[in-house]
Design a protein around this nucleic acid. Structure first.
Lengths: 338, 338
DNA sequence: TTCTGGCACTCGTGGCTGATGAGTGCCAGG
DNA sequence: CCTGGCACTCATCAGCCACGAGTGCCAGAA
């Protein structure tokens, strides 16, 4: 077990390294922090910390830098979440209040997060799996062509064209629309399949194929749109570190362009509280020198989606965590209001 | 006026520089190209080209690199558009044919362009200004709350919540929906305002405020959604050049994140054919060392939107132009079919 | 005139060297 | 268990020099 002072030394190393971006030595440490011991003692502590794998020397007789394991300890035990200032909170709220629709909320959130943390921001669109149906609309575009419009409680709208096997009468369509809505409105997507299962049977024999086709398309839309989308912002902030990892920036950009990778990244987030994944803890190897700070957000208690930032492992964890948490909460509020 | 051979020298310089990414000297030129003259002669030609501002020496007695003006001449007079191979064409078509809806078409196009040109791809969503209304739907969500859904002929769907000054009866809503659709369906967005101008007057006095509110929201949506959106892809390709402009990558990334800048960039595109804007020809200074190759696309003769790529001024213009042209055409076809 | 070969000159690049100094490990003594 | 001292390591940086690609110019050939 590490003594209190050794933990203090680790904290000091992390803080200094995050600030200066340079390996930190024993002398500099005792000068900048009131550790109450001499550089020599600190050196001994450092030797232990290195043996335990918390810090690392880039080359013989250089300063130390924290390892992923060191950051992990720092985040878990040594660092709190730095709350934002009142002014920052107000700025967040003002900025998000201006949003006009769901897309706008997401877009603004991304900008906000990127600006606040000066890192790459990632915001997942509210997931439809946990959403409920607000309304299903059926429009006749041509005799055998129907447009299906699905409106969710999060304000999202999806549409699909349906080519029917036979012409559909306006009355049948109205009938279907009414019955469909009375069954599914207010229910979760995941419950819809069982709710509409036997709906076709209540129609005239001739209309059943058409009804089935429409229903099939609806279910398909639900499944397809459960595949979540992600919005990205602040990639320019990556270049702030390109002296730090000039060669690494490319795989990071590549990884960030892959929605799948991002979704997986956010998928590993706990349901409550801020989650931090450091360096190699991220499965994707292009992101092995970056950390992800993320959190779920939602209109109620349940998280409907996630948001977070991606930055170098050497980042200001307390500040970033504070910003992510604050933004996630406010976005949740905004969603709850609309 | 420049002699035939001097133009040939310029072409050779551009081609070699694009290939090697290094300043090209007279000796190397005569070795790689069959100019039929000695290096000394080429040197004289180069001196003239430099005097005219087509090429430039990074430092005394180094090779020459083309200037923006040199690239301009190359693009205008010396280079054709390199058509794609049959295999490439087939690949494009296959890839785009798989798209399921408009968003998907745009998303696939971006990926395709980025991959094909190995540069940053930019695709503008089909503009709504020239679109026509396919359907307007009104849904009653609460007594005094209506959801307005707008469906365009390009398959785009937009929705807005309307808070009405008074409760709206279902019959009034149905009435408004019917009249509204009969007036605007099939018409262009720009014509809608005049078409619905006096619609409120045909309603009962009590309902007029509500009708006006709904109409106002509709017009607002039309205007707002005319503001076009843009999709970006292949930013990772920027890093291929970061030895070339290591410091320049940041402003480029920043510029690319600004929708406004991109829209302005694409806005300068001619209505037909491939447009090339080189280096400082782009107004935005962050993009002064990049070139934009863009083209309009659309379902008919008229361009409804634009797409293109952004890359270093030192790029393979003929190849890039060929790829952009081919993709624009195929996307146009896809849109026309749907 | 126009092209060519030759020649002196420029200047960025890359390899080498030595000084500098931050940082270390170790050890003996408080 | 902490501290001061000491010898050692090694990345960084400035200075230096040789190299060579590339140039401009000029006199002579075509």
């Amino acid at each position: 077990m590490l003594s209190e002072r050794r933990l203090e030394v680790l904290r000091a190393i992390v803080q200094d390294y995050v600030g200066t971006e340079e390996p930190v030595g024993s002398k500099a440490l005792t000068e900048r922090h009131r550790l109450g011991v001499s550089p020599a003692t600190v050196r001994n502590d450092m030797a232990v910390l290195e043996e335990e794998g918390f810090i690392h020397q880039p080359y013989t007789s250089a300063g130390r830098i924290p390892t992923d394991k060191g950051y992990r300890l720092f985040v878990d035990k040594l660092a709190g979440v730095k709350p934002l200032t009142a002014a920052e909170r107000r700025a967040i709220q003002n900025f998000l209040d201006g949003a006009v629709d769901l897309d706008d909320v997401v877009a603004r959130t991304v900008r906000l997060l990127a600006q606040l943390t000066r890192q790459v921001a990632v915001v997942q669109y509210p997931s439809l799996t946990r959403s409920t149906v607000r309304h299903v609309e059926l429009l006749s575009l041509a005799p055998a062509r129907v447009m299906l419009v699905l409106i969710t409680d999060t304000g999202r709208v999806e549409q699909r064209l349906v080519d029917c096997p036979a012409p559909v009468g306006e009355t049948v369509l109205a009938d279907l629309r009414a019955r469909l809505n009375s069954r599914v409105v207010g229910h979760r997507f995941s419950d819809v399949p069982s709710l509409v299962q036997d709906l076709a049977e209540s129609f005239e024999h001739d209309d059943r194929p058409t009804v089935s086709t429409v229903l099939a398309t609806l279910l398909e839309t639900l499944v397809e749109e459960t595949e979540e989308r992600i919005m990205l912002g602040g990639t320019a902030n990556l270049t702030r570190f390109n002296h730090d990892f000039p060669l690494t920036i490319r795989p990071v950009l590549e990884a960030l362009e892959e929605q799948v990778v991002l979704l997986k990244l956010l998928g590993e987030v706990k349901d409550s509280g801020v989650t931090v994944r450091i360096g190699h803890e991220n499965a994707h190897e292009g992101l092995s020198s970056t950390s992800v700070v993320a959190m779920g957000y939602g209109s109620g208690d349940e998280a409907v989606a996630r948001l977070g930032v991606v930055g170098p492992t050497r980042m200001d964890y307390p500040g970033t965590m504070g910003a992510v948490r604050a933004v996630a909460r406010y976005v949740g509020q905004i969603l709850a209001e609309s």
